[in-house]
Design a protein around this nucleic acid. Sequence first.
DNA 1: GTGATTGCAAATCTTTTGCACTAAA
DNA 2: TTTAGTGCAAAAGATTTGCAATCAC
Lengths: 149, 149
Amino acid sequence: MTGMTEPTPKPSQERPYARAHERLKAAGLRSTRQRLALARLLLEKGDRHVTAEGLHAETKAAGIRISLATVYNTLHQFTDAGLLREVVVGTGRSWFDTNLDDHHHFLFEESGRIEDIPPGRIALSDLPAPPDGTSLAGVDVVVRVREGS
Amino acid sequence: MTGMTEPTPKPSQERPYARAHERLKAAGLRSTRQRLALARLLLEKGDRHVTAEGLHAETKAAGIRISLATVYNTLHQFTDAGLLREVVVGTGRSWFDTNLDDHHHFLFEESGRIEDIPPGRIALSDLPAPPDGTSLAGVDVVVRVREGS
DNA sequence: GTGATTGCAAATCTTTTGCACTAAA
DNA sequence: TTTAGTGCAAAAGATTTGCAATCAC
């Protein structure tokens, strides 16, 4: 027991970093300045699809200083911690998706951008049995669309 | 008319490059030494999935001298000409598939290798409508499997 | 002969890594 | 204090490109 007054915890809506801090803590990640900033950008804005490059540009625009290498590392740490999902489509570009539900993607061929397909809009039947000696890890469906026409 | 004897054309089975030559010609591509060699490796051995790197190694092992850049360029020319299909899965690696039929792939996560899923083994229903202003370009299904267990 | 094709090396693009420095707990 | 995390620059793939030399037609 201390003689000091306990500070009254404010509800997290009033402390912008509190939610991010809690999520990082729950994921077993230290709340560093850069992880908090990225967590806020990614996890408090609804569903998002970002590339490392794009997120880095976003932090720069917001006046947050983070190196591109740290953005890459952090995105992978978040993915390993189950806060993000990595989506590999199109050539040589990884997207990170904040939507963790089981879902699939539209791929816009011109821009390489992706977008969620509303849940329940794709049904797969007759899934083939995995080849001998293998087990199913997941199924990805990519619906490629062209802009215009 | 010449006094010379016309050489009797042999059936193409006996002239290993004849078929490849005809396919290139039909595709509007000049029959260069390297295109013929690659066409034979790719198109006369049943269904194949190759990477540029892998195909380059194969030519080297066969004593055929082709630069890696030319292998890349040729694979793309063949793809543009409709002789091959490019399959992008996993990170930063393009596969070229000699199977032009509409079909999908297993992806072996450890090795990054792909394999055709037997036709008719996947049925998609309830395909979502392409977003406004876009038209459907194709649907790719990747069944990811893990080796072992 | 002449324009398409090739080879090479250098450039590009995305992503990863090594390591000295910094900061969270 | 101690150990995880960061920044930077350099490395590492995969692929592309520029250009002079070469080859198919």
